[in-house]
């Protein structure tokens, strides 16, 4: 009897036979979105895209145009010219400043990544429980403002700071060490500390992703811990290393707070110079030119860096 009932409902007049099913209604926009994957992608991106256009691309264009202007007294001469670029290329002060900036942030980047790698490695491979807590603890310095951290280092490295007074009271030195503060080293130490979290997080993510059985496989195939690190762990964490390097190198090259507070005359960087151009000197076109030149240098270095790491990765295998 239930079977008969079932058969009846299946062929009841309210259910049209399969051939005459009502058409499924879809809106035109829905259809378009369903068919066009690119469009869907753009739609998803649109808020970001809008912010990027307004916040980055338009200012960048303004900066670019500005860099081809020149300053005439208190006015800007809006005729487009390469004068500023010629000055940057010919006057040695710009080159020296740029080279020093790239050097300082390059050393700071390498120092930071080298110091953070073991920490990230430890959390990824040796911490079993509460990994999140470890990561939060590591990024704890980031909970205070950048400026405060820089001042903290000033207190530590200063003429009568923590290190100097400690060393004097221990009797290891007679007079305070002067190179600690207002030097390139001071800038490098401060930058390395201030940007540590930017290195640890990408390094941790890339190390955490490494399949543990790959490490066992390398051991099984005869690699000791050192060989295994250079042949498997490091190459597989390379995306994290590259990301960490970029995340630190790019912002630190243009940084002006740390060099201004801790750098002294020797530690002055291009960022300070650009800030001065836009500020007291009131030579916006020159500041814009320097910003563009700095950007081009960073791009060039980034490309070379990417190329070299890729080659090295192929070689190491």
């Amino acid at each position: 009897m239930p079977e008969a009932l079932d058969r009846m409902t299946r062929f009841s007049p309210t259910h049209p036979p399969p051939g005459e099913m009502p058409r499924i209604k879809t809106g035109r926009i829905a259809t378009l979105l369903h068919r066009n994957e690119t469009l869907r992608g753009y739609l998803l991106m649109s808020p970001t895209l809008a912010i990027m256009t307004i916040g980055i691309i338009i200012p960048f264009i303004i900066l670019l145009v500005l860099s081809f202007w020149t300053r005439q007294g208190f006015e800007f001469d809006t005729t487009l010219t390469l004068t500023n670029y010629r000055r940057v290329a010919s006057e040695p002060i710009f080159g020296a400043l740029l080279a020093r900036s790239l050097w300082i942030s390059g050393v700071a980047t390498i120092t930071t990544v080298a110091l953070c790698y073991p920490m990230a490695y430890f959390v990824a491979f040796h911490v079993r429980r509460n990994k999140m807590m470890w990561l939060i603890l590591i990024t704890l310095p980031f909970w205070t403002s950048y400026l405060l951290r820089v001042f903290a280092w000033k207190v530590i490295l200063g003429y009568e700071g923590v290190i100097n007074s400690a060393l004097i009271s221990l009797g290891w030195i007679e007079a305070p060490l002067e190179f600690l503060l207002y030097s390139r080293e001071a800038v490098i130490i401060t930058l390395a500390h201030a940007w540590a979290a930017f290195a640890i997080l990408p390094l941790y993510v890339s190390l955490e992703k490494i399949d543990k059985s790959l490490l066992e496989a390398a051991t099984d195939l005869g690699d000791g811990p050192v060989a295994r690190f250079f042949r498997v762990t490091l190459p597989l964490s390379m995306p994290g290393v590259i990301a960490a390097c970029f995340l630190i190198f790019i912002p630190t090259t243009g940084d002006y707070i740390t060099p201004a507070l801790l750098g002294g005359p020797d530690g002055m960087m291009i960022g300070n110079f650009i800030q001065v151009q836009f500020g007291p000197v009131n030579n916006w076109p020159m500041g814009a030119t320097l910003s563009i030149v700095l950007m081009l240098w960073i791009c060039a270095i980034a490309l070379v860096f990417l190329f070299v790491t890729r080659k090295a990765q192929e070689r190491i295998a």
Partner: peptide
């Protein structure tokens, strides 16, 4: 230690090194 034992292992998930091609995987050891 495992890297000095006269044994080799085929892992359950095969553990093929993703950053190496087939030849370098086979020649690894």
């Amino acid at each position: 230690p495992p890297h000095h034992r006269p044994v080799n292992m085929v892992f359950q998930n095969y553990a093929i090194f993703p950053h190496l091609n087939v030849r370098d995987n086979i020649a690894y050891g």
